[in-house]
């Protein structure tokens, strides 16, 4: 291939379009959430003396743990440019299921099926994996958009929850779940450790495995992934199952953490988990972001929720403030995409 000889190479090109401006713009989706976090932390630390204490840091970590566990799986889904609206409902039904298969105290009026702890846990995990598989089937085989499919699943999971507890409340879960959900080791709550480990595992899978690369590529350009000979349906199906299983684990530990299993217990976790992923900067269009972003997003939400409790404002106003911050994050998310496209110019 001789014609290269006639083409004098221009001076050694840099790795990317250089200059600090374009770099900043192309990294906007990582920088903006981080600045938000620093700003919020500084603000609350100044506004309230009780905010920046070691105790409170522990509180924040504990408060974001269940959301964090659920958000691991959701990150995979959003990276593929899909959505899972059934995460909270699946968390709920898995938590209820594990209680349903555990011997309850006699005053609890639920027709349950007590069995050994490990069996209860396995059955509960099987249930959430199965629900995830149904999501996967609807999305990939039938071709129902994930938005609709998981909306239906949200209802189905809520229905199963309702039938299992019939308006009652169960309290007992297998001892290992109780430990992981509500006790500490060396002053660190187990639930924080579990959340950290799951986030780490998610990060390793996304960054260092072939499957992780496929997730990014499918999210980046699904058509191209298909023409590259990737099994796109298998990858999409897998992320739906991963999301459901993460939700299930979050649900079981959550039940232990709250000390009860009942209907509608996890409703706020749907919005919180989506917010954590998106606020962190993972692109809603797929292919950009990751667990690192989700962690920053979790802290932004955690600091915000916790910090608002430390300053003296109207509790109804707090809801509005959270909404506005979420809106701002969405605007940044969408603009980051465009800025990146323009950064090269």
């Amino acid at each position: 291939m001789a014609h290269g000889e006639t083409v004098p190479m221009p001076e050694a090109p840099p790795r990317r379009a250089g200059g600090i401006g374009p770099l900043l713009r192309s990294q906007m989706r990582n920088i903006a959430p981080f600045l938000t976090l620093i700003f919020l932390t500084a603000f609350f630390a100044l506004a309230s003396p009780s905010f920046a204490t070691l105790d409170n840091v522990g509180n924040i970590l504990t408060q974001v743990s269940v959301t964090g566990i659920i958000a691991v799986g959701l990150t995979f889904v959003i990276l593929c440019a899909e959505i899972d609206l059934s995460i909270a409902a699946i968390a709920n039904v898995t938590g209820i299921a594990v209680a349903f298969f555990t011997m309850q105290d006699s005053y609890v009026n639920i027709a349950n099926l007590p069995m050994p702890g490990f069996a209860a846990i396995l059955l509960a995990l099987a249930l959430c994996a199965l629900l995830g598989a149904v999501n996967a089937f609807g999305l990939t085989v039938i071709g129902i958009p994930s938005f609709i499919m998981t909306l239906a699943m949200m209802q189905i999971a809520a229905g199963i929850s309702a039938m299992l507890v019939r308006g009652q409340i169960a309290y007992k879960v297998p001892p290992i779940i109780t430990t992981l959900g509500s006790s500490s080791i060396a002053g660190i709550p187990w639930i924080v450790i579990v959340a950290a480990l799951m986030l780490l595992l998610g990060h390793l899978v996304l960054t260092y495995t072939r499957f992780g690369r496929y997730v990014y590529m499918v999210g980046g350009n699904r058509e191209a992934a298909e023409y590259s000979g990737l099994n796109v349906k298998l990858i999409l199906g897998s992320v739906m199952v991963i999301s459901a299983v993460c939700s299930g684990i979050g649900g079981m530990l959550g039940v232990a953490h709250f000390g009860s299993a009942q209907q509608n217990e996890f409703d706020t976790y749907l919005l919180d988990s989506i917010a954590a992923v998106v606020v962190g900067g993972t692109s809603l269009f797929g292919g950009r972001g990751g667990i690192g972003n989700t962690i920053v997003g979790l802290f932004v939400l955690g600091v915000l929720n916790n910090g608002l409790d430390h300053v003296n404002i109207d509790s109804f106003l707090k809801i509005l403030i959270r909404g506005l911050i979420l809106l701002a994050a969405l605007v940044i998310n969408v603009y980051a995409q465009r800025l990146r496209a323009k950064a090269a110019d």
Partner: peptide, 16 residues
């Protein structure tokens, strides 16, 4: 457009 990942580096496009 249908076969390449424009936002990914060249080597990831080649190795996919």
């Amino acid at each position: 457009r249908d076969m390449l990942f424009l936002q990914e580096p060249v080597y990831k496009n080649v190795s996919i």
